[in-house]
Amino acid sequence: MGHKNLSFLAAAATLVLTYLSLGNISAPMMTVSNSDKIAHSIAYFVFTWIWFVFFYFSEKFQLSFVKSLLYASVLCFVYGVLMEVSQGVFTTYRYVELFDIVANTSGIVIAVIFIRILKNTLVRI
């Protein structure tokens, strides 16, 4: 995948997550306890994967596996915290939730674990 495609994918994922984080949208009521936290974890799992792929496979950056994983993890964590703070500062219909940050972080950590497990497969691609 070329740099422009990877850039588009990372930018699109960031825009979608920004909209979902700050938009005045209502999620369908789910019967599973803490389902919004599960959704946060899944979203940040995918978000971390996308940014890892961007950094690792981009011809522009040519980062090592470890640096790509570190950059993606830190970027996604900082972004998640900024989105939570932005909800409290810039919206009247959302508020900051510490457990959302914990859920985001759990998605990032799980993504890091999976990416590390799949390292040899990813390197061969």
Rank of each mutant, 00 (worst) to 15 (best):
C76Y: 04
L63F: 10
I42F: 15
V89P: 06
I115Y: 00
V74Y: 06
G88Y: 11
V74C: 07
F45Q: 01
V96E: 13
D36A: 10
I125S: 09
F65C: 04
I117D: 11
V81Y: 12
L63P: 06
A11E: 15
S35Y: 13
Y44D: 09
G23H: 04
P28I: 10
V109L: 13
F55W: 13
V78H: 02
I108G: 11
T105C: 02
H3K: 04
V81K: 03
F8C: 08
A13I: 05
T105R: 04
T121R: 06
M1V: 11
Q87C: 07
F52E: 01
I38H: 01
S21A: 02
V78N: 07
M29K: 13
L69Q: 00
V66F: 03
V32W: 15
V16M: 01
S21T: 07
S21R: 09
H40W: 14
S58E: 04
F57V: 12
E59S: 06
V32D: 13
N104Q: 09
A43V: 04
L63T: 13
A103K: 07
A72F: 05
A103C: 06
F99Y: 14
F52Y: 04
A11N: 12
S64T: 07
L63Y: 10
V89F: 02
N5V: 01
L22E: 07
S33C: 07
I110C: 08
A13T: 12
T14Y: 05
L118G: 03
F47Q: 08
I38G: 14
F47M: 12
V109P: 01
L9N: 12
F55E: 07
N104I: 03
V112A: 03
G2H: 14
L118Q: 07
K4P: 09
A72E: 00
S33L: 08
I113Y: 06
T121A: 07
S86P: 02
N34R: 10
I115T: 06
R94I: 05
I25A: 05
K60A: 14
A43P: 04
F47C: 02
V89N: 01
M29C: 13
Y44K: 09
F90G: 11
I117H: 00
V74W: 14
L6S: 03
V74N: 09
T92K: 12
T31K: 13
V53Q: 09
V112G: 10
K119W: 04
T105N: 09
